[in-house]
Nucleic acid binder design. Structure first.
Lengths: 232, 232
DNA sequence: TGAATGTCGATTGTCGACAATCGACAGACG
DNA sequence: CGTCTGTCGATTGTCGACAATCGACATTCA
């Protein structure tokens, strides 16, 4: 097989269903489609330029991921988020990250720590530049990496769903505008604890990190009705 | 609204899709459909007397649950189980049960312990009667209850999937024929530890309980090729 | 008047037919 | 003879049309 002179990109090869999933999921977790919003199959199909078959399959997947809710013969809506949902989301998230953390420390691979530190550096740079979007992106990357480094595929699959819903919560309650560099620096002690293999400390710090965000969001949720337009 | 004289049962009201899911899922976790087995949409549709639309949606759900594997334009097969899969399955299972256990002990509700003990009694009766099937059923009920008592819906959803796949592994490696009453009695120390709220002990016992089963299965898996017919 | 029942529009659930894509094999070309 | 290319059957992916079911409203009858 002769090598081609220039490296070409792989062309987009996903099925229609997968692309629909991506589009809708992104719209939901970005908060563009708000909780309670009705998702009418024919309307969506027309708007996206596809038929109902792949669209229905996409909605089914999102339903199983917990992003939408379907009542038989009634319709599909973007799932409403209760305070309990958020609390469960964050407690479960903590569980998954702690598990990964334990595996990581047990493996004791310096490469792991380096990778986490890279994401921290990127966060810090973004924070100093005042780029919230980029900061959040690297924040996600940090936690995603933590999970990926476990090498546990079942854990990763579970994380995927949880992580998306966390993104959604943050998007709907955006801009609590804390000091950006402080957010970034929050991650240092965790990395350090991993580096010196202090399991208990790392676990404790991680849970504090997660819980503080979760509690804050849950309280905010209570304060204002919810993220939906409440179009009743 | 006048009360009817006799209590009538709710009639089966599931969509075709849901019933297909139930049938296929049960066949897979019971080991009737073996790993590697090809699932051809038209054949299944004909056999079940439905069209491909709801069947495809059912396969999609099973795919996301990790029970089958679909390659675009190639087909769907019952997912193969590697040794790694089994190890992940059991470690993840341990994680979920430990989490539930912690919540349970934190709540400290005597009713919880009573419920677990009921399942244990049923297990013991089944064991003494030599009814393996019934024993396994109540064993599952015990662990299902443990999860349910947490009242954590996200945990329950996650458990659902894991639990099914564990059932599948056991079905494919059935009859290791250990002493039945001993299996049942295994659960007593755990219940006792919960009753006296000894968290560490309960967690340790639970993990031993789960890990011993998981390791045993993983080893057996290695010994014999795998559960599939290897029809190559 | 008001509770039970019939009707209607909207939306989802299901179906059969057609299009797209795959791996395997046959054939052309050097 | 080996490699690449074109064709073929099988299977999945997508489509438009029809059937089933829902809540809301209108209607009936005491």
């Amino acid at each position: 097989m002769a090598q081609l002179p220039a490296q070409l990109h792989q062309i987009e090869n996903k099925s229609r269903r997968e692309r629909i999933i991506d589009v809708l999921r992104e719209a939901i977790v970005a908060g563009e489609l708000k909780p309670g919003q009705a998702l009418i199959e024919m309307d969506l199909a027309t708007q996206l330029g596809v038929s109902r078959a792949p669209l229905r399959e996409a909605l089914l997947v999102l339903d199983r991921e917990g992003l939408v809710e379907t009542l038989p013969y009634r319709g599909t809506i973007v799932r409403n988020l209760s305070r309990t949902d958020i609390e469960e989301l964050y407690s479960f998230r903590g569980l998954l990250e702690e598990f990964s953390l334990r595996q990581l420390i047990a493996r004791d691979n310096p490469e792991d720590v380096a990778q986490l530190r890279n994401h921290f550096d990127a966060m810090l740079t973004a924070a100093q530049a005042g780029d919230v979007r980029l900061l959040n992106q690297h924040d996600r990357a940090f936690h995603d990496t933590l999970i990926e480094l476990s090498g546990h595929s079942l854990l990763q699959a579970s994380w995927q769903t949880v992580s998306l819903r966390v993104r959604q919560v943050m998007a709907l309650r955006n801009r609590q505008n804390r000091d950006l560099t402080r957010v970034a620096y929050n991650h240092i002690p965790i990395i350090d604890a991993i580096a010196i293999r202090d399991l208990d400390k790392a676990v404790r710090l991680l849970h504090e990190h997660i819980a503080s965000a979760g509690d804050l969001l849950a309280e905010l949720w209570e304060a204002t009705p919810n993220g939906a337009e409440q179009s009743s």
